[in-house]
């Protein structure tokens, strides 16, 4: 009984794939399982992982958010520009978080009030936020040398890099939100059947605005980590990173149709992608082939998902 339960749990499957990959890689290269490489890997994965958490919520609701990379850049630029103007780093960070949340809120309003499909609305925001980031800075990257940001980007706490704590807290909070709260239940209902959700009195539009605002907020959280790691805020940062976040969600096994999936699998999906990149780097295989492999993994992940739903 408990074995059946484990077998049908989507987290178990994807986790097994990730563990298997880690084992294979550590056999193939003695450098893979080193502290240095693991630290590196967790830093690499952190930004995509944070974005993927927001993306997972959006995709479970039956939507998509293409704007997260640009919103990340806009938030980073707000932080960098304010610090350049000698604003207190904490206030600059809060302003950056607000900027990202507002951009996400605008996405939600355009989708619900304007009745624009999420793909189009967030594609528009992808251009708008990136353009604003470039316009604010005139294309210039500001250095950020405030100790707080350097700490976030480079320090360790209990032997773990700080960005990893951002990831852990993000997934803890989003996990609780999705599985224990009314909001999370509504996200699943909207993704399952929006018309029914509306008919049963769920404030669908209000919840959708919250969903996209949340995705924007998490893009801004990722911006804070990114600013720390780069010690600068280039407005061209994180181009096409939204595709990595979406890929992580899909590899994790969250259904693109909506209504199904567990957010934590997006983190494992992000880890698998990072391991592919990192592992192939260590093995000295060209980065060109990494892209090919990730592409194949995405398609295979969805194919496996289809097999699963066919057997249901």
């Amino acid at each position: 009984m408990t074995f059946d339960k484990l077998k049908s749990n989507p987290v178990v499957w994807i986790l097994m794939v990730a563990v298997l990959m880690a084992i294979v890689l550590s056999f193939l290269s003695p450098f893979f399982m080193t502290v240095g490489n693991m630290t590196n890997l967790s830093k690499q994965v952190s930004i995509v992982a944070i974005l993927a958490a927001g993306q997972a919520v959006v995709i479970i609701s039956g939507g998509i958010d293409l704007s997260v990379g640009s919103v990340l850049a806009l938030s980073a630029v707000v932080i960098g520009t304010l610090i350049q103007m000698d604003v207190d780093p904490t206030i600059a960070m809060i302003a950056g978080l607000i900027a990202g949340t507002v951009a996400g809120w605008v996405n939600g309003m355009v989708i619900t009030r304007g009745k624009i499909p999420p793909f189009i609305a967030t594609l528009g925001m992808l251009g708008i936020a990136r353009g604003l980031a470039l316009a604010i800075t005139g294309g210039v990257s500001h250095p950020v040398l405030a100790p707080m940001f350097l700490y976030i980007g480079n320090a360790k706490l209990f032997a773990l890099p700080i960005p990893l704590y951002f990831v852990i807290v993000t997934y803890l909070v989003i996990g609780i939100m999705m599985h224990k709260t009314v909001f999370g239940r509504h996200v699943y209902a909207i993704g399952g059947n929006e018309r029914v959700a509306r008919l049963q009195g769920i404030p669908v539009d209000r919840q959708k605005v919250k969903i996209y605002a949340l995705s924007g907020f998490l893009a801004a959280v990722a911006a804070v980590v990114m600013t720390g790691r780069l010690a600068a805020t280039p407005p061209s940062v994180a181009q096409a990173i939204e595709l990595q976040a979406i890929a992580a969600v899909i590899i994790g096994g969250i259904s693109f149709v909506g209504g199904r999936g567990i957010v934590i699998t997006a983190l494992i999906g992000a880890l698998i992608m990072a391991m592919i990149t990192n592992g192939l780097n260590i093995l000295g295989i060209s980065s060109f082939y990494q892209q090919v492999l990730i592409g194949i993994v995405i398609i295979v992940a969805v194919w496996l998902d289809n097999l699963k739903s066919a057997s249901r």
Binding site: Y188, A189, N193, A197, Q200, G259
Partner: peptide, 8 residues
């Protein structure tokens, strides 16, 4: 038509 969310 059955007005339920099948995924729940």
């Amino acid at each position: 038509e059955l007005a339920l969310c099948g995924n729940l």
